[in-house]
C-alpha cells in the first residue's frame, strides 16, 4: 500500500512562500489566480493490506513527526 500525505499550513497562518509564488504567477501573466498555499507531499510505502490500520498509523506519524499541528494540517490518502 501507499500512503499519500499532504501537509499544509492551516488557514489563517501566513504562508510567505505561497504568497511569493502567487505574485510570480501573476507576473507571468496567469490571470485569475486567487491564492496559492504551499505545502509538502510525502509518499510512504507501507507493508500489509489493512487500510484502516494504515490510516491510523499514518495519522500517528503526522501527529508525531510529519506535521507541526500548531501551524499545519494534514490529509492522508491510502492507495494501492
Amino acid at each position: 500500500m501507499k500512503a499519500k500525505v499532504h501537509v499544509t499550513l492551516k488557514p489563517g497562518v501566513l504562508d510567505p512562500q505561497g504568497k511569493a509564488v502567487e505574485g510570480a504567477l501573476a507576473a507571468l501573466g496567469f490571470a485569475g489566480v486567487e491564492s496559492v498555499r504551499q505545502g509538502k507531499f510525502l509518499e510512504i510505502e507501507l507493508a500489509g493490506d489493512d487500510r484502516d490500520a494504515a490510516e491510523r498509523q499514518v495519522a500517528e506519524m503526522c501527529e508525531k513527526l510529519l506535521a507541526n499541528t500548531v501551524i499545519e494540517k494534514y490529509d492522508v490518502e491510502i492507495g494501492d
Binding site: L9, V13, L14, P16, Q17, A20, N68, V70, I71
Partner: peptide, 10 residues
C-alpha cells in the same frame, strides 16, 4: 508555545 515560520519577506 507557538512555532517559528519562514520569515515574512522570505
Amino acid at each position: 508555545p507557538g512555532a517559528l515560520l519562514r520569515n515574512a519577506d522570505l
